[in-house]
Design a protein around this nucleic acid. Structure first.
Lengths: 248, 248
DNA sequence: CGAGAGCTTGAGAATTCTCAAAGTACGTGG
DNA sequence: CCACGTACTTTGAGAATTCTCAAGCTCTCG
């Protein structure tokens, strides 16, 4: 399963990693509630609820989704250990997404109003919150781009590559990805049909890029996976349709 | 063309609309350079340049785009009068996108470092910057969703509807949209082929939803346009393929 | 007025979707 | 501990949308 070692660190290190002095860290820790545990299917926040807290995932995984005016569901993102959610609700004062635990999740919870007051007394904390907001903004500007790429192959390979990068960025080294969400969730998130996800995962396995055991995906050939994200690199090699044919 | 009336307001009203007292507004105005004018094709910032300023568009329109590692171009957004750009570069310390003037553009320019210092002395300004960051984050989480919707019709109708809303939000009342960008730009932005944009615009016109005169689009039936964004509403009416057939 | 970029239109090709059905995994209750 | 039901996943075949390529047209700007 997951590496739960980070549940031993001070939550301030997870939530707001920064060189604050001890007094400031103490003040910060006062406004942080640690060790909120949620289980599969639990809602952490709900779309439309009044905004109050910002959250960091300490272990486990969550998904955030919303229903638009026409009642269509959109799965916007999955949150991994070390990642924050809720910052997009500061302005609207309501959560725009329901965030649900996909497995057993440990959270750290911060009251944003108190955080904001603390920021106005601690300039380096203010800077850090600006940075966190900007980082999220940068990521949603640059990464969603992957999902436009074009082909379903690029979307799914980009998705797997992105998840692996994020795990590795948090110090994990394994090539195993446990995906607690359903194929339907992945499909919705990428704007594809669930059947397409099934077929692609199968093909990736046949191409020796990944290994699938239900919801456990092992990255076998990271280089090949990366080359699939930017399709140009595949020109000289076998095309998807050729693979399909040779398999038949 | 555009309504240039807002170039007469204090730039602080455009950039950071908020109830600051006069002294604070004076300090804010000191860090704002007004009336930077750029012309069609000029780059305002370039992808990879060191981050320094945050910008607000006072009149005209800009597009922001980036090239990924494989050299593929992605047009991320178009900025309308009253809108900000550059906030996503705070964390990375470099601009992630090149921002280019699509016509004659008047800008207001703020040094972010100075803004940040001022924020730590003026709590209400700090709040305002948090709000602006969060608003952008919310918009990129909620709106890009439109682009996943599914059909090309939904993407393009969503794009037109979104532009119209943003113009109206800034006090414009006209149903005319001057689109200074090329069909290719729109296509790239929506992840479609330029030919598809042509064909769809033509069909929208035949359905009496819009009127096209080169790059000037007039929204004829806003209600019908909105219903196209959420495709379900069209079930009872004519389907796209029926239209195409009847036209032939 | 002419050149070039941008736009439109057509026809065929390719990817992805939809619908349908069979297979598999997991949790509950006997 | 096993059986069953439900939800999830996989697989297949045909349908639909969108893309690609190609050619002609139009607008703009020098």
């Amino acid at each position: 399963m997951y590496d739960h070692s980070c549940s031993n660190c001070a939550m301030s290190e997870i939530c707001l990693p920064l060189g604050l002095d001890k007094a400031d860290i103490g003040r910060l820790e006062k406004i942080v509630t640690t060790s909120a545990v949620r289980h599969t299917g639990d809602n952490i926040v709900r779309q439309g609820d009044a905004f109050q807290n910002v959250y960091a995932v300490k272990s486990g995984m969550t998904k955030s989704y919303r229903f638009d005016d026409a009642g269509t569901e959109y799965i916007h993102s999955f949150h991994l250990p070390g990642e924050l959610f809720g910052l997009d609700a500061i302005y609207a004062k309501r959560y725009g997404f329901t965030v649900e635990a996909l497995d057993t999740v440990v959270l750290c919870e911060m009251n944003f109003e108190e955080l904001q007051v603390l920021c106005s007394h601690v300039p380096s904390l203010q800077r850090q919150v600006f940075n966190l907001l900007s980082r999220d903004l940068y990521n949603s500007h640059v990464n969603p781009i992957e999902h436009f790429d074009q082909t379903a192959e690029q979307k799914l390979s980009g998705f797997l590559h992105n998840l692996l990068s994020r795990f590795h960025a948090r110090g994990h080294v394994s090539m195993e990805l446990h995906l607690p969400m359903s194929r339907r969730d992945i499909a919705n998130h990428l704007g594809l049909a669930p059947e397409t996800i099934s077929r692609l995962l199968k093909r990736f396995q046949q191409q020796n890029v990944i290994d699938i055991k239900n919801r456990l995906v092992t990255i076998v050939d990271q280089v090949k996976l990366e080359s699939m994200v930017h399709c140009h690199a595949l020109e000289a090699s076998i095309t998807p349709s050729e693979i399909t044919r040779s398999v038949k």
